[in-house]
Design a protein around this nucleic acid. Structure first.
Lengths: 341, 341
DNA sequence: CTGTTAGCGCTTTCAC
DNA sequence: GTGAAAGCGCTAACAG
């Protein structure tokens, strides 16, 4: 049978309380008894029953990560960032990615049952009312991955989408000399996508460029969506000189579309992306994009979350202010854009 | 305060046992009382204490996934495959990827503490004695991701590395007409890598081709390793016509090396890989490689594991035979190899 | 159909 | 320093 502290107590001729203390490095136990118990424990291959311990401590030591469906490029690094911090603080990570068996709301509800996880890191395309509602009945700390500015009541960690989009558009204009720059947006309700679009528009405006509505096409952050949008742009009577895609997947779609048109990047049209996912460095020509330090995003959110968990009640009661951390991004100069006069 | 079944019992004027039954859809409870309890539960926003339930049931409903460090391309799809099956069976998934804070062995030990997870899916580069030792003291079912044939005593799910390597080498020879085919291996102790090399050798032999030792260079499954190995191959007095890289990352390294030599793929040298990771379809030219259905690998391993968990003791006592499932792979014809006579 | 009761293995007061 | 004992919230016999 499995060894319990009771068993150890019997063999060591002490009480279970003492065994428990020894196992938890309570300084109050006499060194001799402590050593006796510990050696006995390893000899009998005692393994604490985590379930029992968690139960009485009301803690699972697990961080829940809720992810949307399409985060291919991010996934690995993001999780690794969280994982490293979590592990260092004694936490495990539980992933709830979205797929045909489960929605984001279901994942949140699943996690907010008492005891499943101690805290949640949520990456959602947008905070719908239903989602906010689900979050409101969640009694554990939640950190939301979002660069949005209108989430006052939540802790957020996000990349500065506006700044990144502004930077690369400004780069395309000032350094590359482009004047006719199109934009393929992300999903209509996606907060990141909206900020990127806003950054793009502001950069055009600040540089005194005309905003042509025909050059702003809806995309959906996917390769297919980018490809379709780009085909439309290339079919326009007045074609843009460069296309700023709202993310790298969309940019990849542009590569396909441009190729199918028999055109060359960057000679015939410049392409820029956003995210600098793993793939981007292997594209030919190397994609000019905005580098997002995804692992740092994961790390930072995990640090914030573990801190909130430690603060416990004090925080949940709303005594402490919510934090909004922005991680800034930088332009990665690739070869998919070239000087244009 | 948090609502417990006791609270519900009080309000519904029934015993806690009845509440527990109602909550667990026990058919024995009278419909009226059941409805009363359920409506009361939702009204009071009762959430079961999972920790308590798990404790008495001795089940965490979590599947542990142990991953090595460098599985970039696999990660997403593999986890998603497991996640879908797990979710459908009511399990959550916990990931322990390897990083500077944690080794594979530590992850296994962490998971084998009673109660953390109900079963483990392990992907390890190789089964060292220390690892086998850690597994032997693990009292929960483990499914190992491996195509190796000498793991009789474990349940395994793996891709058929030998068959895949044989197929693509045979394709290079028969369909593409290459006769001088080099190979860049994976890590020396990696079972997958060894099988791939074996498949390569057998295909050469079956086609009556001479095996040139100079054309077999050590790699390590990384881009950098592939690049270095390829540079050596291209510097050889007698260069190979094509290179079969043991995985796609290695093949990507070859692309870099070939480019730095001012040569063209596939005109000057053909390149083939293994895995068909997400990136491969975006390389220029598209990589010819072996497609590994990674998501299916995850799905299959999760199905096997949940089955083992259900079998419980019966299985652990060794009454049932271990299963060894092989998932076969197919050649993806890209544009990185061309007919050569 | 429902209630009573005995735990599950551990932590943690409170005495000694 | 150590022990006795309460109890965490729930499930699962067993008894009615």
């Amino acid at each position: 049978m499995t060894v319990t502290i009771k068993e150890l107590a019997g063999r060591a001729k002490v009480s279970i309380a003492t065994v428990s203390r020894a196992l938890n490095n309570d300084p109050k136990v006499k060194p001799e008894t402590r050593d006796l118990i510990l050696s006995l424990a390893s000899q009998l291959e005692y393994k604490p029953n985590i379930l029992a311990r968690n139960f009485v401590k009301k803690k699972s030591n697990i961080i829940g990560i809720v992810l949307p469906e399409a985060v291919d490029g991010f996934f690995t690094e993001f999780i690794r960032g969280i994982g490293e911090v979590a592990c260092a603080s004694g936490y495990n990570t539980m992933i709830a990615d979205t797929h045909k068996e489960r929605t984001i709301i279901e994942s949140i509800n699943n996690f907010s049952a008492r005891g499943v996880v101690d805290g949640i890191i949520l990456m959602a395309p947008s905070l719908t009312d239903r989602l906010k509602n689900a979050l409101s009945r969640c009694e554990i700390p939640v950190v939301i991955i979002s660069g949005s500015n209108d989430l006052e009541e939540y802790d957020t960690v996000g990349i500065d989408n506006f700044q990144g989009a502004y930077s690369i558009t400004d780069y395309l204009i000032k350094s590359m000399g482009y004047k006719k720059i199109a934009h393929i947006t992300g999903p209509a309700l996606n907060a990141d996508a909206l900020d990127r679009k806003a950054g793009y528009l502001k950069a055009l405006q600040d540089n005194g460029l005309f905003v042509c509505e025909d050059w702003i096409i809806d995309g959906d952050f996917t390769v297919k969506g980018g490809q379709n949008a780009c085909l439309r742009l290339l079919s326009l009577p007045e074609k843009p000189e460069a296309i700023f895609a709202s993310n790298d997947m969309t940019a990849i779609g542009c590569y396909k579309a441009v190729e199918s048109f028999g055109l060359k990047i960057p000679d015939d049209v410049g392409i820029a992306g956003y995210d600098d996912v793993f793939v981007s460095q292997f594209l030919t020509p190397r994609l000019t994009t905005v580098h997002v330090p995804i692992q740092e995003l994961g790390r930072t959110s995990a640090i914030l979350l573990t801190q909130r968990i430690k603060e416990g009640k004090k925080f949940q009661e709303g005594i402490l202010k919510r934090k909004h951390i922005k991680i800034s991004t930088g332009v990665v100069v690739g070869k998919s854009c070239k000087f244009h006069d």
